[in-house]
């Protein structure tokens, strides 16, 4: 075990993949010689050569389209979209093409591609470097949508994503690249070395997709979340004094509904937390599935904590970001406290 931050863990995952499978290639804006604007591919071109880790033109639609074509011809491309805010030019290739290729060709063709993309706010990136667009993709069947919350998961899940024969959207919460973040911007930054999720084996391993993780067991209520908000929720739970079970979804779609329903069945109370905007967000889907499967278990209405329904505002970063206070209020509300 080594201590790694999330960037190092992702880099290590790609290193293992490039090493094991000559069909794996990495492509994206600035990912080659430079190693990516967040340094996730640093050193990989130097190690594996230009043909395996290369810069692309600034054309997200082109990146995904060519990745699909490469995938059809036997490669296993990992495409980086520099910020998830810049994924929209690729929407048609993702939604109409990658997601449906297997279905429309009667199973003949498929797109074994992984799209990595940093997402989320908390870095004063304004509306084009802060978005959480996962809900746009969770609405599309055929896509697998993943968001890790720590370096260990990031490495294992990325390896599984690349080895999957389905297209995977792999969103990386950039605020926690260097360390966990509990939502308090005034606290000194923490790094991953003192967090169990920062212990990452150097060698190859994979973690199953479609499987949520229970990051804290508890009996009073269930907090369902993913990404950066796992850490914010944990801090809010500690402050609340309630014995909450915290579920980190890790894979959003296909959803591990069984882990959720088992927990809600036990606790009867539930808070759903995500950074993305509220209306039509993935939280709404979780709520309705719980309502369908656990209605008679519920002892209180389910609460949702989300970003506001506005673009991500630069100067109001911390009024927008759903921090500990808002999670805490929701916990107290479902507990009737």
């Amino acid at each position: 075990m080594t201590s790694m931050n999330m960037i190092q863990a992702l880099n290590s995952a790609m290193d293992c993949l490039l090493d094991r499978d000559p069909n794996v290639v990495i492509m994206g804006e600035d990912v080659g010689y430079f190693g990516g604007v967040f340094r996730a591919t640093a050193g990989l071109q130097q190690k594996y050569g230009r043909q395996r880790v290369f810069d692309t033109p600034i054309a997200e639609g082109g990146i995904v389209a060519t990745a699909i074509g490469m995938g059809v011809n036997g490669l296993r491309p990992i495409a980086e979209i520099q910020f998830s805010d810049y994924i929209y030019p690729a929407i048609d290739q993702i939604v109409s093409e990658a997601a449906r290729l297997r279905y429309r060709s009667g199973g003949e063709y498929y797109a074994p591609i992984t799209i990595r993309s940093p997402c989320g706010g908390g870095i004063f990136g304004g509306q084009t470097h802060s978005q959480s667009p996962e809900g746009i993709f969770t609405h599309v069947s055929g896509l697998t949508t993943v968001m890790p919350s720590n370096p260990y998961d990031a490495k294992g899940l990325l390896i599984a994503a690349v080895e999957s024969n389905d297209p995977v959207l792999f969103f990386e919460p950039k605020r926690i690249y260097n360390g966990p973040f509990d939502g308090d911007p005034n606290k000194p930054a923490e790094d991953w070395s003192r967090h169990e999720g920062g212990d990452v084996p150097e060698e190859y391993y994979s973690l199953p997709l479609r499987q949520a993780a229970i990051v804290r067991e508890g009996a009073d209520l269930t907090v369902i979340t993913y990404g950066t908000m796992v850490h914010v929720s944990r801090a809010a739970v500690e402050r609340s004094g309630f014995d909450a079970e915290i579920i980190d979804l890790r894979t959003l779609v296909p959803l591990d509904i069984e882990t959720i329903t088992k927990s809600v069945h036990k606790t009867g109370r539930c808070v759903v937390v995500h950074e993305a905007t509220r209306t039509g967000g993935f939280g709404a889907e979780i709520l309705s599935q719980i309502q369908e499967d656990c209605f008679w278990d519920l002892e209180a209405p389910i609460e949702r904590v989300t970003g506001w329904d506005t673009p991500y505002p630069h100067a109001f970063e911390w009024e927008y970001f759903p921090g500990q206070e808002r999670v805490l209020t929701a916990i107290e509300k479902v507990m009737g406290a």
Binding site: Y86, G126, P313, H314, F316
Partner: peptide, 28 residues
């Protein structure tokens, strides 16, 4: 006094009076 009302990162100017269109973060 930010005329983008705190919503945009620095340098994403807008100036309608000067016939200058609001700058986007999505290139092109």
């Amino acid at each position: 006094r930010d005329y983008c009302k705190g919503r945009q990162m620095p340098i994403f100017y807008t100036w309608r009076e000067g016939n200058y269109f609001s700058i986007s973060g999505s290139v092109g």
